[in-house]
Each structure stands twice: as C-alpha cells, then as structure tokens.
Computed example of a mutant assay.
Amino acid sequence: MQIIERKKAFQDALLTWYEAEKRDLPWRRTDNPYYIWISEVMLQQTRVDTVIPYYERFIKKFPTMQDLSDAPEEDILKMWEGLGYYSRVRNLQSGVREVVETYGGKVPNNRKEISTLKGVGPYTAGAILSIAYGVPEHAVDGNVMRVLSRILLIEEDIALPRNKKLFEQAVMELISEEDPSSFNQALMELGATICTPNPHCLLCPVRDFCIAFEEGKQQQLPIKIKKQKMKHVKLAAFAIQNGDGNWLLQKRQSTGLLASLWEFPMIELQEFSAVEAFEKEKGLKLKNLQELPHVHHVFSHITWDIHVYRAQLEEEHTEGDLQFFTKQEVEALPKSKPVLKIIDLLEW
C-alpha cells in the first residue's frame, strides 16, 4: 500500500477536487446528526436522485427526533412509501426512540454508543460520526470499497464480510484528521461519479495514486464473487370495488417483506385458475372481471410477476383482514411500490 507513504498529497488532491466538484445535496447543507442519519438510511440501496424529495418531505414532517419518536408507524410508512426496504424506517424510528429515551435526544458522538442503536451498523455509525461530529472514523460502503480496491489494488472478494475490515483499516490509515467529514464524503462521491463500475479514469483527481490504473487492472476490480440466486414468484392481484365504488384492500402481516403495508388482495399463482383460487381462498364472488397488464417488480433477492385483475363484488361480503376504502382513503394509506404500479394501471 505505497499510497500511504504519499498520504498528504493524496488527501489534498481528493479534497481539492471534492470542494470544487461535489454535488449540491440537501443533507450536505447541515451538520445535524439526526438529519444526516435520515439521509444515510434513505441512501442505502437507493439512488441519490430518488432520495432527495423523500428526504425533504421526511424532515419537514418529522423535523425533530421527538416528532419521529412519537409518530404512529402508519405515518412513517406513508412518508417512506415507494422507497422500499421498509425495515429501514422502522429501525430508524426505533433507534431515534433509543436516543430520545436514553441520551436525552442527543445522538451519541462515539462509535461504541452509537453502534448500539437499532439499525446503526458500522457504515452508518461512521458516516454520522465523521460528517456530523468531525470524528475521524471509517464509513465504508460499496462505493468506497470500489475506489479503494483500485487505488490500493486490493484483490480480495468484497462480497465476503470478513474482507470489509481491510477497507475499514485502509480508511483509518488514509483519513484526513483535519477534515474527516469531507474526506469520507469525497471517497463516496468519487465512487458515485467517477470511479464507477465502468471508471472514468481520465477525469479522476487521484489517478496518479491509483495502483490498479498504473497496472491496467481497474476494470477487473473490485472482485465480487458471491451472488445470491434470484427467486421468481408469480402472483395474482385483484383490484375490487363494491357498489359504492370503494376499493378492497388488505394489510400485510406485521413481519416479513413489506410488513404492515396495505395492498390489493393477492394470492400466489398455482396451476389452476387464478380467479377460482382467489374466490375460494377469500370467500368472495367476483363479476365484471377485466385482466390488466402484468406488473413486474424486482426486490433484492426476489422478483414478483403480478397478474392484475380488476373486478367488482357479486355479493357485498368480506371477511378476515379485508376492508373497503374510498379512493381518498386508499391514497392516504402506506402502500408498496408494486401496489402503486397497479394503481397507475387503474387510471383513477
């Protein structure tokens, strides 16, 4: 790791570039640890452009940790609607409640305490500590691992959890003690904009320090072997109205995928008729059936192929967890992205 010998020159080149070229993002205009915490949770597995309006709406709705701590779960799910990975916001609220109850509403400023909070892993802890408090701590995400694997020529599989320590140690060796906030953000920014999977090396401010570029190996890094097999599931969803034009919805279970969100009644497709299976399982009789285009949605390790049907109830009868809602009530409920796609098909 010969770059460590030229650490100061590397820091200067990286920080000078970041100061001149960094994107103007709303969470970069604050050192409020609560707001930075929110942004980091939202940015996990989500594109920056997607996050910006969610972040701005969220901090407007819950401007203080006390506001988020006191909020009903349905309210926070509604503000997260469409962002996906809903356990993130549940964990965020749980962590914030811990801060309010245990630390008097002040986010801990050391790794030991902040890491005990629900949903705060090593990356999020380091990001909050360095960005909000100026503590020289590592914040290693996928972008940072890609950058450092090339600069330092780390030819280890980044998909293996044990190898993350290599990158955390490297950051601690290289980080600017004077400006750890900008240093960590600069590494992330470099990975997001220049040192991308298909790198733009001619634009890179630290190309002179990059061992992979020097050896022509930048396209081969990072090494990532582990790949989880995608599961494909076929479903049928039914957008059903009663005689008053209200819509039939059900609430998902309180644990698991898309927990506690509302959706049109859905069943997993079998070999026999989707409609017959649905009527038998739900105890309903349908009429005026209309098949709509399929909805395709990809989660991290599962893909849903949803056959969508629009129908009316033959008899005014529901049971179990099914409830009717007006259009306005449906719009106010927290729903998943697949359900929002179905609503788009209904053209209401």
Rank of each mutant, 00 (worst) to 15 (best):
Q93V: 06
T102I: 14
G104L: 01
N32C: 13
Q66Y: 10
Y55F: 15
A71C: 02
L83K: 00
R57C: 02
V100Q: 06
P63N: 04
P53Q: 12
G84I: 02
V100I: 12
G104C: 03
I38D: 08
T102N: 15
F58G: 01
Q66L: 13
G84R: 07
R97S: 14
T46A: 08
F58R: 10
R97Y: 05
S94I: 10
S69D: 12
K106G: 07
K106S: 14
Q66I: 13
P33S: 12
R47D: 03
M42C: 07
F62R: 05
T50D: 04
K112E: 15
V99A: 10
E101I: 04
V96C: 11
Y35R: 15
R97T: 14
Y34A: 11
S69G: 10
N110M: 13
L83H: 02
L68R: 05
R90W: 07
M79R: 07
T64A: 03
T102V: 13
T30F: 09
G95P: 02
F62N: 01
T116G: 14
P108C: 11
V107K: 08
V107M: 15
K106T: 15
T64E: 03
V107S: 12
Q66W: 06
I36M: 11
E74R: 07
S69R: 05
S39C: 06
V89G: 03
R111W: 12
I38A: 09
V99Y: 06
R111Q: 14
K78D: 01
T64K: 07
S115K: 14
E73G: 00
S87C: 09
L117D: 14
T50G: 06
K106D: 13
P63M: 02
D75Y: 00
V89M: 05
I52W: 04
G95L: 01
F62T: 05
N110D: 15
V100G: 01
P108Q: 09
G105F: 06
S39P: 02
Y103C: 06
K78M: 05
W80G: 00
D75W: 00
Y35C: 07
Q93D: 10
S39Y: 06
R88Q: 10
V51Q: 06
D31Q: 13
L83V: 00
W80I: 02
T46E: 03
M79D: 09
K78V: 02
